[in-house]
């Protein structure tokens, strides 16, 4: 469903993405972990067409994003860490707008809009302007709007920023359920507990390269004596917090 082949992206001398290759099959919840500046967001932006790779290719839902972007975009959804929303539309209008973009049939759109607004506890804000929503409500709205057209592939950059515990739980359950239903989910996060909790497979990326990949059990098996994902992550990325001032 997602296939990256020798993907490279340079900013001057900096190798933001350095020869990354991976495959994420249909229905997998894939987690991309890495320290700040490791290349996570650049990779996700290449896959969504917001950044052009210097070399290599990215295939999403069977389409090369560089050559057949429109077909790929019709089948994917993207939730960035700081999403753009139209401030002067109401929640219902924004949902309708997103549904229309992806040509969702009117009847299904109405049904799904009501269901998703309810699911994300936004039914009372349905007629409220987006500009009047709190940060958490805006995050919930972008989830509802992105899921409206039922994308085959969903990219999420830092999925839990600004959400309350109730919504975090809701999102985790929802992502698991959607993945079981066949949706491929690719998410980047700093929250290692989230990856431990929901990911089918995890890749740890550092300096633009994948330095470890596999399920949690596989990662643990690759690093005998290290019991938690946090320790594996710190060990592999050589981060100074692995000891340092705390000692």
């Amino acid at each position: 469903m997602i296939e990256l082949k020798n993907l490279c992206k340079y900013y001057g001398d900096i190798r933001a993405v350095d020869n990354i290759s991976l495959q994420v099959p249909r229905g997998e919840l894939f987690c991309f972990l890495g320290p700040n500046g490791a290349g996570k967001t650049t990779t996700i932006k290449i896959m969504t067409g917001l950044v052009k790779a210097d070399s290599g290719s990215a295939w999403v839902a069977g389409y090369d994003i560089a050559r057949d972007a429109l077909s790929a975009k019709q089948r994917m959804g993207y939730i960035p860490d700081m999403p753009y929303l139209y401030d002067r539309l109401t929640c219902a209008e924004f949902m309708q707008f997103c549904g229309d973009l992806y040509n969702v049939p009117a009847e299904r759109l109405d049904r799904e809009r009501t269901r998703l607004l309810e699911l994300f506890s936004l039914q009372e804000q349905s007629a409220a302007l987006v500009r009047d929503l709190s940060h958490g409500m805006r995050q919930r709205l972008i989830y509802a709007a992105t899921l409206l057209h039922e994308p085959e592939v969903l990219f999420i950059d830092e999925p839990l920023i600004g959400l309350d515990p109730y919504t975090i739980r809701l999102i985790k359950d929802l992502l698991r359920a959607r993945a079981r239903g066949g949706m491929t989910i690719f998410l980047t996060t700093h929250i290692l507990a989230l990856a431990e909790d929901i990911a089918d497979r995890i890749a740890i990326v550092n300096n633009g390269q994948i330095i470890a990949i596999g399920s949690l059990q596989e990662l643990k098996a690759q690093h005998p004596g290290i019991n938690t994902l946090e320790d594996i992550f710190l060990h592999l990325t050589g981060h100074p917090a692995n000891g340092g001032e705390c000692r």
Partner: peptide, 13 residues
């Protein structure tokens, strides 16, 4: 415009 990345990830020509 911040709207452009939103539009570029949508199904627009």
């Amino acid at each position: 415009s911040r709207e452009i990345p939103f539009l570029l990830t949508g199904p627009f020509r």
